[in-house]
Structures are given as structure tokens and as C-alpha cells.
């Protein structure tokens, strides 16, 4: 998406959308709890509307999502979300090893040729890294990390 867009209008529309989302989520609760958020929603609405007006009067233009490969960040984001989703299912340790290896393999493609041999070199490094963090957090800092099917 390397086309220039009016970032003021785009930003203003996002701001107005968020204003609407928060406005319609205002529940019927006591004045004390709601007076401050109400004031801020009003301010956000005014700022967003000003931004839209500025977009027509003195627009700022810029390219969006023009840094590197959009596919690469989107796939990385997807892998992050899957990783987090699977933590309670297969446990912290296993999910970390599986998804870190997948992310390393995926991102490495842009720089080097990924072969089975390389994978076998990376795997012990990743396992050692995850083990190090796992032991620090569970044994020294006593943070109970999620366990899944395995451990």
C-alpha cells in the first residue's frame, strides 16, 4: 500500500470511530464514575473532528504501510497471536519452542536459504534460550507459568 493518503482525514475518521465506540459504551452508572470519561470522550470527538477539518483545509499527506514487507509483519503478527493463544493449551515451554522456531524460520527466509540443517542448528539454541527463561521465572522468581498438555 504505497499510495499517498490524507493522514489527517484518515486519523480523524479513526478518532471519530473510537469516539463513537466509547460513547455508545457509556453505561447508566453514577455521575462520579462517568463524569471524567464523558469529558474525555467529548474532547476526543472535538479533536478528531478538528483533524478531519484540517484534512480539508491544510492536509498532511503521507504513505502508510510503506516500510518493508507488509506480508512479513502480518505473518509475524499472526504467529504472535497464535503463540499467545496456544500458551494455555500446550503450555508455555512447548508453545515458546514451537512458535519461536517457526518465527525464526519464517523471518530467516528473507536473509538466507532455510535448510533442514540450519533448522537443526537453531533448535538447540532456541530450546536453551527458552529453558533459561523458563528456569529463571519458575525456579528463581517463582512465577507459575501456564502448563498445557505436556508440562
Amino acid at each position: 500500500m504505497n499510495r499517498e493518503i490524507n493522514t489527517d482525514i484518515a486519523g480523524g475518521v479513526i478518532g471519530l470511530t473510537l469516539t463513537a465506540i466509547f460513547f455508545f459504551s457509556l453505561e447508566d452508572i453514577s455521575r462520579l464514575s462517568i463524569m471524567f470519561p464523558e469529558a474525555i470522550i467529548t474532547i476526543l470527538g472535538i479533536i478528531s473532528a478538528s483533524l478531519v477539518i484540517k484534512g480539508f483545509v491544510a492536509p498532511s499527506r503521507g504513505q502508510i504501510f510503506n516500510v518493508g514487507s507488509n506480508t512479513r509483519w502480518l505473518v509475524t503478527a499472526l504467529l504472535f497471536f497464535l503463540w499467545v493463544f496456544f500458551i494455555p493449551v500446550i503450555g508455555f515451554f512447548v508453545s515458546a519452542v514451537v512458535f519461536m522456531t517457526t518465527i525464526v524460520g519464517y523471518l530467516a527466509q528473507s536473509r538466507i536459504k532455510v535448510t533442514l540443517r540450519r533448522f537443526l542448528t537453531w533448535l538447540p539454541v532456541i530450546v536453551a534460550e527458552v529453558t533459561f527463561f523458563y528456569l529463571i521465572f519458575t525456579k528463581i522468581l517463582h512465577v507459575p507459568l501456564p502448563r498445557g498438555f505436556f508440562f
Partner: peptide, 8 residues
């Protein structure tokens, strides 16, 4: 992290 990933 997304920026680093995108830049490759």
C-alpha cells in the same frame, strides 16, 4: 518488532 520484521 513488527517494523523489524517488515524491514527484514
Amino acid at each position: 518488532l513488527y517494523t523489524i520484521a517488515a524491514k527484514g
